[in-house]
Amino acid sequence: MSTTTGTYGYGPDFYDDEQVFPRYQEARAATDEGNATLEEPHVTEFAGDLRGRSVLDLGCGDGRFGASALAAGARRYHGVDGSARMLALAATRLDPGTLEKADLTTWKSAEPGVWDVVTARMVVHYLDDLPALLGEVRRCLTPGGTLVISVEHPVVTCAYDGDWHDGVPSEMRVRNYFDEGPRDCEWLGASVRKVHRTLETYVGALAGAGLPLTGLSEGRPRPENFRDPRTGTARRAVPTYLVLQARKPTA
């Protein structure tokens, strides 16, 4: 297989690469893949019962979460993503009219105050201005509405340096943890820029936006989510995901 040598400063450009995109799909389809086993179960738990609720999905990707939200009884769904290839795939699972192509660095909601649940899965670590996005999220949530964010865990994003076996890290070398800012991540045959933030910064940004933290998970592995118990055991060595739940006050 040929390799991609590109370096991408923004997530959507990375995923729209003609070689990266199929590699990403292949990675997501792998048995006991990390998002499916470590991140998604905690996102689903924090999002709560979606029956009769409206869901805004920032960084909606291939639309799988949107399809599951509607299957769970959500009365309305809207997905936003900057990648044309991801949105095209999402449109095979969802009504294209529920999808919006937009750059989340400048995105503004056309419908403030109407969304009961907002999700931002594995996307905000591509953005420089987290407070700006969180302010917009607060504006579009209903009173008492829920925000669920997932990101790569800060012990991973600080250096991207570790020992990996079959796609599972057995050790990460934590360096320059409190020096926040851009990092280059080599993944799927290319390099993509991500932004490292500490756990303290994520929690503080939520509070600063008026969205106090109500739940936190580091993607603790649950044996029932793994087909191969050996993978579940190996995943206990290093936390690779951080999932945060926050709520907009009712008054």
Score class of each variant (00 low, 15 high):
D62A: 15
P169F: 01
L141N: 00
A88W: 00
T119S: 11
V114W: 04
H165C: 13
L58P: 01
C185A: 11
E171D: 15
E171N: 14
V148K: 05
A69M: 13
D166P: 05
D163F: 12
V168L: 08
A132F: 05
S170R: 15
R183W: 05
K108N: 14
S150L: 05
D62F: 08
E136V: 05
F65K: 07
M172T: 07
T92G: 09
K101L: 15
V168D: 03
E152H: 12
D95Y: 10
C60V: 07
R76I: 06
D103R: 09
R76H: 15
E136I: 03
N176F: 12
H153G: 02
L141G: 00
M122L: 14
D128Y: 04
G135K: 10
C185F: 15
A74C: 07
F65N: 09
H165Y: 14
V124T: 13
L130F: 08
W164T: 11
M86I: 08
L94T: 00
V117E: 05
G135R: 14
N176M: 14
T146R: 10
A71I: 10
V168W: 01
G66N: 08
E136N: 09
K101Q: 15
D81M: 09
L94P: 01
G66T: 07
D179Y: 10
G73S: 11
D166H: 15
N176C: 14
R139C: 04
G61H: 09
V117S: 03
G82H: 00
R64Q: 15
C158G: 08
R175M: 15
G63K: 02
S170Q: 13
A72H: 09
H153M: 07
R183T: 05
S109M: 10
E100Q: 12
G66D: 09
S150N: 04
P112G: 07
A84F: 08
P96Q: 10
L127S: 02
S109D: 10
D129V: 09
Y126T: 00
V114K: 06
E100A: 04
D179I: 10
A132H: 07
